[in-house]
Amino acid sequence: MAVVSKRPFVIEHLRKAQMIELLAQGRRLDGRSLLDYRPIDIKCNVIQKANGSALVSLGNTQVIAGVKIEVGAPFPDTPDKGVLVVNAEILPLASPYAEPGPPDEDAIELSRVVDRGVRESGMIDLSKLVLIPGQKVRAVFVDVSVLNVDGNLIDATSYAVVAALLTTKMPEVEVTPSGEIKEKDSMIPLPASKIPVSVTFARIGEAMVVDPNSEEEAVMDARITLTTIDEGHLCAGQKGLAGGLTYEQIMFAAETAKIKGQEIRGLIKKAVSSVG
């Protein structure tokens, strides 16, 4: 895990002024319009030793997610549910500003916001992961490594986690009468249904843009991430940074998250189906 300095990019006042001027005209420094994502590339099954994996590029932001499935004990307060753990690390190789060390609050927030999106969407039916109620369940560990930092780690991480889970295969198991778990040779997918898609907005001045890059993140006033499921309903949200949002800006984000989420859901489906 690494710590990335809060303001990795020193943006000169002139450049910030130029950015805000362009935003007022509905354009951005890298040529995108306000509601354009950078090119999204999703490749599944990139790590053979993992049960599921995905490599996601969002412009220059790059993350890799791997799923490992083990047999373990359930949490005491949910004896009838399997275990799902999502954890994200920003590797020291991901940015000149990243340093090794315990996870800082940004890395913890990243993990928890992505985890919340997957968990609250009901994407994985955890009740189907129970082997012996109260004693043995499947534990699904999703670990994400950020390989290159260029803004919007939340969305890149979220798409990688979802694509990796959708392509996860695990051995079928048999519970012997003596309570032992035996793995069989046949592989089955995870009980996954919905596809949660997060859409992250940055407020820069009065403008709301999606998918901010590092340069935009260095000057943004507030951030909001909203996650939707297939039906368009919202399932998770998180406002970030030391700025506020108006009621109208939040409603705009909610509507846009639905539309953009649908587009990106198509990309994830395509990437998942291309590996079978």
Binding site: H233, A236, Q238, L245
Partner: peptide
């Protein structure tokens, strides 16, 4: 101005 918004659940 809304300064905190989190959502857990559908």
């Amino acid at each position: 101005i809304i300064t905190l918004l989190q959502l857990d659940g559908i």
